[in-house]
């Protein structure tokens, strides 16, 4: 077993709060958070599908909840999470292939991810409104 005194004198890595805020680190945690939202969001998809499979009464009940303002707000949040996380995923694929690590490029890609996520969410929301 490792010597306790040795373990205690090992240098510790600096903790999270000593770092200056930068966009890429915020986007890193947002990728994880949106992944978490989507995880929970699959319950809403499952409930909606099961309701649809259970007949018109159940469907009307659940669909009514989803069409309420709070339901729409949650769905909008999930749509944003999906779009943001999907673009974030493309960024991950680029890194996996060895591209996009230069600090300027990384910052630019993070910014594009953030803005495109919001813009595309608005596009989807408007489309849903127009085609309703």
């Amino acid at each position: 077993m490792a010597d306790a005194r040795l373990a205690a004198s090992r240098p510790l890595s600096p903790h999270l709060q000593v770092f200056r805020f930068i966009l890429t680190m915020a986007m890193s945690i947002v990728h994880r958070i949106t992944g978490g939202f989507l995880y929970v969001g699959t319950v809403f998809v499952a409930i909606w599908l099961v309701a649809a499979a259970s007949g018109p009464e159940w469907f009307a009940r659940v669909d009514g909840l989803y069409q309420s303002w709070i339901g729409r707000l949650i769905l909008l949040g999930l749509v944003w999470s999906l779009i943001h996380h999907a673009i974030g995923g493309i960024r991950h694929f680029a890194w996996d292939l060895g591209y996009g690590f230069a600090p300027k490029t990384a910052d630019l890609l993070a910014l594009i991810n953030l803005v495109a996520g919001i813009v595309l969410t608005i596009v989807v929301a408007v489309a849903a409104f127009v085609f309703a």
């Binding site: 699959t42 319950v43 998809v45 499952a46 599908l49 099961v50 649809a52 499979a53």
Partner: peptide, 11 residues
């Protein structure tokens, strides 16, 4: 598993 099975059965 539950989410997956529920969605699959419904679909």
């Amino acid at each position: 598993a539950l989410v997956g099975i529920a969605s699959a059965v419904a679909l």
